[in-house]
């Protein structure tokens, strides 16, 4: 499946060493290099979160007591909404890998179909995140709602043992980490959706068919899977632990 340098390639397009390093095309390898450095950024955030979360272990808010809302209901359902978001992202990752697979068969119809599903999945994830942010800022049924003084960032009402009737202040760092980590991840999802959309439009226009291969789908696929991968870690380290 991976590109193997079995054919003789024109010297002009090769790297200085006369063949491609690791038998990977230039674009794919640069995407891997980008992902490696990007993963270090996320790793830095998660390390900082892990450190603060454990050294403030007595005051750190309990995630299940904060993120238990579901749209349209008052049921107490801890972790269900974020599990749903995780599931949406995993499924859109699956449709992406199906698009890559269809690309290897030069099956334009299926590439377009699966890429379209991927774009929709990413958009749904972004919408879910917007709802979660809104609920987090305004509190259950909007009781903390004070956009004017930017309540959740300046004063975190989600201390241990907080209830809607009796809000307890917790460490500000909790809200800071929440917005920073999920926000940084969300901006990655946004750029992933835009990239997928560009590749989708070009697939419909037949660019890659003319080019003879769908490697561009594979490259944006790598990025999209990385976004999913990061969310797997965010889910564990922010919500579960």
């Amino acid at each position: 499946m991976a590109g193997e340098a079995t054919q003789v390639i024109d010297k002009q397009v090769l790297w200085g060493g006369g063949r491609s390093p690791f038998s990977v095309s230039y674009g794919k390898m640069m995407m891997w290099f980008f992902l490696i450095s990007d993963a270090l950024t996320f790793g830095g955030f998660l390390t900082a979160l892990g450190f603060q979360r454990h050294h403030l272990v007595d005051e750190w808010p309990i995630t299940e007591e904060i993120f238990y809302h579901l749209p349209g209901t008052h049921a107490h359902a801890p972790l269900v909404y974020v599990a749903l978001m995780t599931f949406i992202l995993i499924i859109s990752s699956v449709t992406m890998v199906l698009a890559v697979e269809a690309g290897h068969r030069m099956d334009k119809k299926n590439v377009v179909k699966w890429l379209a599903f991927t774009v929709v999945g990413g958009a749904v994830f972004l919408g879910s995140q917007a709802w979660e942010w809104y609920t987090f800022i305004s509190g259950p049924d909007g009781i903390f709602s004070t956009w004017e003084d930017n309540a959740t960032l300046a004063r975190n009402f989600y201390g241990i043992g907080t209830t809607p009737e009796n809000p307890v202040e917790g460490p500000q760092l909790y809200a800071n980490f929440f917005f920073f980590i999920t926000g940084f991840h969300g901006s990655h999802v946004l750029s992933g959706v835009i990239l997928n959309l560009v590749v989708l439009i070009r697939s419909i226009q037949g660019w890659y068919e003319k080019r003879g291969h769908y490697e561009m789908v594979e490259k944006v696929g790598l990025y999209w899977h990385f976004v999913d991968l990061v969310w797997v870690f965010v889910f564990t380290f922010f919500y579960l632990i």
Binding site: M1, A2, G3, E4, A5, T6, Q7, I9, D10, V13, L14, S20, S23, S25, Y26, G27, H104, R105, M106, R211, G212, H213, E215, E218
Partner: peptide, 12 residues
Amino acid sequence: DDIIEYSLHAHH
């Protein structure tokens, strides 16, 4: 250089 031949090899 993003359309060199060995990319074409990844077909199945």
